[in-house]
Design a binder for these strands. Sequence first.
DNA 1: GTCTATACGCAGATAGAC
DNA 2: GTCTATCTGCGTATAGAC
Lengths: 203, 203
Amino acid sequence: MSTKEGPQASRRGPYAKSTERRQAILTAAHAVFAARGYRGGSLQDVADRAGMSQTSLLHYFPSKSQLLLAVLNWRDSITGDGTAPPDPEESLVDAVLRQARFNEDVPGVLELYTVLCGEAVTEGHPGRPYFTNRFEELRRSYTRQLRELAGEGRLRPGVDPEVAAASLIGLWDGIQTQWLLAPDKVDMAGCLRGYLELILLPE
Amino acid sequence: MSTKEGPQASRRGPYAKSTERRQAILTAAHAVFAARGYRGGSLQDVADRAGMSQTSLLHYFPSKSQLLLAVLNWRDSITGDGTAPPDPEESLVDAVLRQARFNEDVPGVLELYTVLCGEAVTEGHPGRPYFTNRFEELRRSYTRQLRELAGEGRLRPGVDPEVAAASLIGLWDGIQTQWLLAPDKVDMAGCLRGYLELILLPE
DNA sequence: GTCTATACGCAGATAGAC
DNA sequence: GTCTATCTGCGTATAGAC
């Protein structure tokens, strides 16, 4: 159990254990916020799930709101949130559908996103700047990609790239909510593919 | 100020005042839940805004969850929520755009809907059955309307009415969220019109 | 019907021993 | 770094006087 720290172990505490603990907290907080929301989930819930006391938790994340932001940023890193344009070889359609199917299979990811995004619209919510900024970046990214496609003549005439970008993001979020409430009755990937086929022309 | 109650006022309490009070509570609760969500808004907030004590409030609505359901049902009655097919003279496009522009102008309506809908996905939320049911009804209603249009040859070939119904609802909800976070940068009505023009053919 | 008072519990955060 | 104990405040809901 003892972590090797070299001959002079006086400076520099046990980093490895710390990052492990932080990871456990982030995982637990992700699950709690996904199930109960930010306001509905308590630090005690998170601490219980992570197997430590509530005060220990606050040693790593000094406040509940900072824990939330850490969870949101961590979520981005594990999902590949689509803000950064990835593999230039992959088509827009493939990238969107791959991401949608991935989200369907990783439990809790969509719950967290949907719940917190709704909550974030409220007054004084610590996640509000995150979502405002995220939407802005996503709109910019998709608008750019659609403009490129338009340059290649692959965008249906009459379709405005900015409107289509906001619409694609909105459709995606909205259909996720319906899917969470009735997974058997809503075809997430089908709806996204349907929309993309409407705005894009075959090569 | 005295409400006329007829000669024998012994039986039957002051109905008028009661319904007035209930109205004031609903209005206040609507505003509070819209601004802070269900979990984030307290009965005390609602009571303060309605100008009465918290215990008086509980006299009219015996629990917080029942107050929430009353607010949701009241919202339907004032907005005309689209579940019931309205004027058969009005086209689908006109009805959707009219409703969207109406919602833009009545403050708090979209906030309430968006915030509670997101919250409702969480475990044990009292509004969850309401939203599950609402989406189901909406999908049924729009599917039916789109099928009718398909019968008149007004639906673009290849568009599945069920997929398009769920997509329209999802797009609507999702674009509302973006609009609430950045009203100047998102054109709600434009996105909806854009989608409807894609799936419908001119007469 | 409406109030004051209060029961009862949990929230987030801090102090200080170990 | 981690804990127990505690501070302080707010939450929903109830009891009972008026």
